[in-house]
Amino acid sequence: MLKRTLVTAAALVLGAGTAFAHVSLQVKEAPVGSSYRAIFQVPHGCEGKPTNVVRVQIPEGVIAVKPQPKAGWTLEKVRGAYAKSYDYYGTPTSEGVKEIVWSGGTLGDDEYDEFVLRVYLTKDLKAGDTLYFPVVQECPDGVAERWIELPAAGQSADDLELPAPGVKLLEATSGH
């Protein structure tokens, strides 16, 4: 009985630990038609190994992406065409950054860090939806943690093993 209790307790603790260990966005809500500071919180490495690479995929409808450089990390901006043209304060924008890669750094498994982007959330995004930024953490020996799962209809991010970090979209604030 004691053994079972211990196992259950351990499972609860470990389970809870996993739940808090996802890569997440610090700011959980943002209005469309405005700039958004996407702060990715990386709480651990992959299976005990340090993180060397962090890749963030920029979802469609997110433009004017500017990553914040980090000391000790090399920045790479992968550019490409958007699915459609977006309006950026009156300027039509049909291509731009589609993926950001921070590489060459070392973030220990027992360390925490934040990776920051400044983006513009176009008005084409629908308020009420959650916008997901798939993130891949790469570690030595080809090991990776992929926070890339998007909930299907009727699912919540809590149901997923590897949920992509998301931000809840709000109505555009007036005055813009």
């Binding site: 890749r55 995929q57 798939p134 891949v136 992929r146 890339i148 799962e149 590897l162």
Partner: peptide
Amino acid sequence: VLISDFELVR
């Protein structure tokens, strides 16, 4: 099935 870096099919 990991189809690409960011696409996983279960």
